[in-house]
Design a protein around this nucleic acid. Structure first.
Lengths: 212, 212
DNA sequence: ACCTGTGAAAGCCTTCACAGCA
DNA sequence: TGCTGTGAAGGCTTTCACAGGT
């Protein structure tokens, strides 16, 4: 379920504050969902709550971690180290959730060979040539790939990643990737998100005009 | 509808290639949806197709642009010019879809006063202090705000943006923002996206184990 | 012959409401 | 009494299938 990561984050914060038990009502409010929805979601994992009391925060957190696969370490390769790829490589939120950026690949010869900081601990990683994609991915044994290339390059990169055994892809390029159905592709399109907001803004404006 | 931006992008590419008419089947395939779904979506806008023929690509594109509010120009303010904010400011995909980054704000005094390139045309924009948020937002009359700050600062920034009249917010900080229901908030959480992929990866592994 | 537009059916997700247990 | 777990109801989205134009 797509909401588990949210519960995971909220529970992390709650346990850090030393809270032992939490009710579905409280957890739901902090996650921005209804309590009924939250209980349905959690019941999908099993019965980890206590009637009349609530959920043991630490235990529930562990169960969600297990379900999300955060008890293990996922090597991630980022292809395309432009502004966005750079931001992703630097993003501190990955490390403490089980993701380790272990490969950086870019087509620009000016970038190849440069080392950049990965995560927040000051570790550095060298940028490799697109020609070495197969070598790098196989070497680090990555199952997850991030595509932060221009749109034109994305499909080719995707095909090559899949050929090397990558089975999950996070795509930031504004194209619809076609792959075998065995590969999981998620897309994040920054411009699309803004367009959806603009759409609502405009509707708001239309409504106003009618009122006026 | 959340899929209109995808159709918009696909149609842009199609018209650039000089194609005049397009069937629901073709457009759906290029957009990664079923043809029935696409026709339902488009019928929501009105009857812009011709039975037995298909859709006039240019005309349909215009109608979608109008519906999405892309025929007008949306001033956007970005708060938080770290790696991600920087990437967003530089992102070329905004300009040609009606979005104009007109304000950059950051709390870090080291960044304030610096000018960075915005969009792909080499225009530059100065980074302003968080203290001047109200002044800047009012000045440029932005209705759309992007929050790319650390999690701890996000809610405060959000409140201040809303107070200045911002009614749509794109939030990259990993927190659930609470606002008046009149404000549209969309959230993009990079770590969450990876977690969802890892979730599927793990399920895949589980299935394997059962088979073995 | 071909392709759109759309009612009807099916499926999925959310909400309600309460039984059941601490 | 209080809160979880869950059937049942309701609403929304997708798919089906075909009538209706060109």
């Amino acid at each position: 379920m797509a909401r588990l990561p949210i519960y995971h984050r909220v529970l992390s914060q709650i346990t850090e504050r030393g809270i032992i038990t939490v009710s579905s009502e409280e957890l739901a409010a902090a996650s921005g969902v209804s309590s009924a929805k939250l209980r349905k979601d959690l019941s999908f994992l099993g019965s980890y709550g206590t009637r009349g009391v609530g959920y043991d925060a630490a235990y529930l957190l562990y169960q969600i971690q297990r379900e999300l696969g955060l008890t293990q370490d996922w090597p991630v390769v980022i292809v395309g180290v432009g502004n966005l790829g750079h931001a992703l490589a630097n993003y501190g939120g990955f490390a403490n959730r089980g993701f380790r950026v272990v490969g950086l690949i870019d087509a620009d010869p000016a970038l190849v060979g440069e080392t950049i900081t990965v995560g927040r601990d000051g570790q550095t990683l060298m940028i490799h040539s697109l020609d070495d994609l197969e070598k790098i991915v196989t070497e680090v044994d990555a199952l997850i790939g991030v595509i932060a290339t221009p749109a034109a390059a994305a499909q080719d990169v995707c095909d090559r990643l899949v050929d090397c055994g990558v089975t999950s892809i996070l795509n930031f390029a504004p194209v619809v990737l076609t792959t075998s159905s065995a590969v999981h592709v998620r897309k994040v399109d920054l411009a699309t998100e803004l367009q959806i907001l603009a759409f609502h803004e405009q509707r708001r404006g239309d409504a106003h005009e009618v009122i006026v």
